[in-house]
Amino acid sequence: MTMLEKFSSSQQSLGVADKLARGLGFYSFGLGLLELAAPRLLTRTLGMEGSEKLVRAYGAREIVSGVGALSDNPVPALWSRVAGDALDLATLATALTPDNPKRGNVKIAMAVVLATALVDIMAAKAATDRHHRPRNMPIRDYSNRSGFPQSAEAMRGAAGDFETPADMRADIGNGYSRASAVPL
C-alpha cells in the first residue's frame, strides 16, 4: 500500500491517487494552453527569446498528457509527464548561461519543475500500484469452473429441445431450410 492509498477509503472508488491524477491532468491542460497561446510571455520571462516554437511544441505535449491523465487510464500519461519534466529541466538548463539576465527566473522555474516532477513521480507510482495489473500476478486456476454437471463435451447440444424463435432464425426470408443445410 502506498502512502497515498492509506488515505483512501473502500467506501469510495475514487482514491487519493485518482484525485491527484485528475488534478495533474487539469494542471497539464492549463499549462499546455498557456504555452500554446502565449509562448512569448514565457520566453521573455526566462530570457529564452527565439524559442517560441519549442515552447508551443511543449504546450502541445502538455495538452496530450493532460487529456491522457483525465482519461479512464491515466497511468501512461502520468509517466509521460515525468519524462516531460526531465525534458523541461534539460531545456531550462540550457538557459542557465552567464549572459542570461533572467537566470534568476530560470532557477525559480527549475525549482518549480523539480517540485512538480516529484509530485508527478509520486502520482504515477501510486496510480500504477492502484490500477495496473502486475505482470507477475499469480493466476488463479478456474479450470474446474465449467458450470456443467458433466464434461463440456458431454453437454454439447444438451439444449437440443430449444427451438430458435422465428425472428432469430438464420433462414428467415431467404428460402434456406435447416433440413437442407450442408456444411460448407
Binding site: I139, Y142, S143, R156
Partner: peptide, 21 residues
C-alpha cells in the same frame, strides 16, 4: 455448436472459458 472459440488476453478468464468448452 461444433466448436466455440474464445478470444481474450486475460489468462484466468481464458482458463474459465476453456473449462466451459
Amino acid at each position: 455448436a461444433k466448436q466455440v472459440v474464445m478470444i481474450d488476453n486475460v489468462p484466468e478468464r481464458l482458463l474459465m472459458a476453456e473449462a466451459g468448452g
